[in-house]
């Protein structure tokens, strides 16, 4: 009984995750469109290193896809032992805040589903 409930909770979380993914896609497209139309002087691009704690391969791939779909970030590289991920970001006014968003929001959501 408990395992069925567990599977159900996981399924609901997966559905919510898909909705979140679509929301991020729409938001990031609007951001990118706005950036392209307006002058690009405000951009502060850069490559950032973010440590990750996920173990599952599927979870890491989903995280990389989700990072590419969030506004202003694109996964570029990963260390062979899968502990650090390198991201190209468009707006790096505050590096701490950017890393906090990736670690706190996205990785937390992925961990709730896959682990």
């Amino acid at each position: 009984m408990r395992s069925i409930l567990n599977i159900f909770v996981r399924f609901v979380r997966l559905l919510l995750f898909i909705l979140y993914y679509l929301k991020e896609l729409v938001l990031s497209s609007l951001y990118v469109a706005w950036d392209i139309i307006t002058p690009t002087d405000l951009m502060r691009p850069g490559f950032v290193e973010v440590p990750i704690d996920l173990k599952n391969e599927t979870a890491i791939i989903s995280l990389a896809n989700l990072i590419s779909m969030t506004p202003g970030s694109l996964t570029v590289d990963m260390t062979p032992d899968k502990t650090k991920i390198y991201i190209h970001a468009m707006y790096l006014h505050d590096k701490e805040q950017f890393v906090k968003k990736i670690k706190g929001e996205l990785e937390h959501k992925i961990r709730l589903i896959f682990e």
Partner: peptide, 16 residues
């Protein structure tokens, strides 16, 4: 206008 490039440092250190 790049503000930081941590990937370059990692490649030079040989992490990748």
């Amino acid at each position: 206008g790049y503000v930081m490039d941590e990937l370059k440092d990692a490649i030079e250190k040989g992490d990748l």
